[in-house]
Amino acid sequence: MEQHTQHVDEHYDHIGSKMGMWLFIFTELILFGGLFIVYSVYRFMHPTAFHLAAEELDVAIGTINTVILLISSATIAMSITAMQQRKKKLCLGFMFATIFLGLVFLVNKYFEWKVKFEHGHYPGSDTLHELGHGDTLFYGLYFFMTGLHALHIVVGLIIIGFVVRYVINDKVNPERFALLENGGLYWHLVDVIWIFLFPLFYLIH
């Protein structure tokens, strides 16, 4: 009788791994959900201050970043199509485009934050203290939420970077590309969160 001495982990369940990714995405959504609750409560308590503080944010740069993120979402979706059509080079091209757009988003974010810091609009600053509670809370939430979102962009870029490596050495291939799909799902999640952050911070007044 042949005896098993090694534990066999290798059963590839494409739907199962996608389900795992979705469940993880739910936890991310709820994580930001907690912040959305905080945002809505404080907005409800300080409507005027939130209104005025929101007008201070640069709608143009916010819109540009939204467009960049939407396009990057489309390119990562296209990379999956390319993979399914067995066009490896094209697939990699779309993935690099996504990474590039993600980096541009971060650079924009950096300049946007830099301006805010120059104006003294950062947590714990004297300027904010003078402006009052509403502004303190608005900018606290602004930095915390967009900061956490930027952190997710970084994580997303790292994930896509890993998938690029696996695509290059054919560990991710047209027969099993759940990893690429899951990386894509994560990137779309980052996009969905931004879709809500954008109007909440830049537009609503």
Binding site: V59, L70, S73, A74
Partner: peptide, 26 residues
């Protein structure tokens, strides 16, 4: 299922349209 480039592009256009719409509306 393979999502065609056309579908993806149309969805992207829709998303961009909504983005500009929401900026305009506010």
């Amino acid at each position: 299922h393979i999502t065609s480039y056309k579908t993806i592009s149309l969805v992207l256009l829709g998303l961009l349209f909504f983005t500009f719409l929401t900026v305009a509306i506010t």
